[in-house]
Design a protein around this nucleic acid. Structure first.
Lengths: 165, 165
DNA sequence: TTTACCGTTTACGTCCACGTCAACTATTTT
DNA sequence: AAAATAGTTGACGTGGACGTAAACGGTAAA
């Protein structure tokens, strides 16, 4: 008689491990998504019987996948990054190629950062302008103390044309 | 007899104008994309006969659309932003709502900026580590002066496990 | 033992952001 | 007049990233 199959929890594989459900909960994604990433070659969990068991490395990659997605990278791009990383520990010309890819990626990210800063600046302007409008309306309310209808049809403010630049 | 229809270029509408092709070239997108943005309610060019004529405002919006896309926003989100902006110049409660949406957006962008900075940091580390590996290989080449085969099978470097965290 | 949960695979559906014809018109150039 | 160029409206196709449903297996608690 063979030993009974150990449950997934009794496996340790010297290190922390996770079930698919745990990871799904932790990162607030569906198990379907996690399996999909595996189909796309982005993660390779160990199998215990038919079940997937995720190790620290898998969790780290999942994190990178999600961050990459938030930055707008496609799964294919993320996979490429992983593959490159995995293969770049050998020959010099591989390392050089890896360097060039990193440089490209940096350009992309820096462009994106500029877009982001610019958007944040404009957002701040809108925010300030909006608060100013509100403050003016308060002023009028105080002056008119009650006849608020006067300020309903607000004149177009100078800053209202900002989007036309 | 009626005057002949003025050509699209003779129209000025007091201000700079653009044809669809000009904008497509300037922003390096297809005319199909521009028309699609119109179908989705993001731009509203003037019509001269059957042709579209784009004004400064349209061009500005196109710019915003593309920047939004680079930051990963969907067209629906961008449209919402535009609509909100257009309608936020009236009542106080609209202004307040607009403020809350802006605040949300700011949160999103700041989170994204953190992702971005973190990615840039890791990228810099990879870059540095990569250069260091290359430098080591150069060292060996000098020592062995010629018998480069010795360093082909590089031992796994300590930093090679970084992705496992 | 039955019920309740994970977990698995396979297959098809969906939404988004366009690309790709096709068939046509209007203007400009040769 | 003919050809090239730029524009127009449909309609259908596509690739990416999953969602959803079906049908099933294993383990854990009641």
């Amino acid at each position: 008689m063979s030993d009974p199959l150990p449950t997934i929890r009794e496996h340790d594989l010297n290190g922390t491990t996770y079930t698919i459900g745990e990871l799904a909960k932790e990162f607030d994604i569906t198990t379907r998504a996690i399996r999909f990433y595996e189909d796309e070659g982005l993660i390779s969990p160990v199998r215990i019987g038919s079940k997937r068991l995720y190790r620290r490395r898998d969790r780290a990659r999942l994190k990178l996948i999600l961050r990459g997605k938030r930055l707008g990278f496609t799964l294919a791009e993320i996979r490429e990054t992983f593959n490159l990383y995995d293969e770049a520990h050998g020959e010099a010309h591989q390392l050089r190629y890896y360097l060039s890819v990193l440089e490209e990626k940096r350009q992309h990210l820096i462009r994106q950062r500029e877009d982001l800063e610019e958007t944040l600046r404009e957002l701040d302007h809108s925010y300030a302008h909006c608060e100013q409008l509100l403050a003016q309306q308060e002023q009028h309310k105080v002056k008119d103390h009650g006849t608020a209808a006067a300020s309903r049809q607000a004149r177009p403010s100078p800053a209202a044309t900002r989007m036309e630049d």
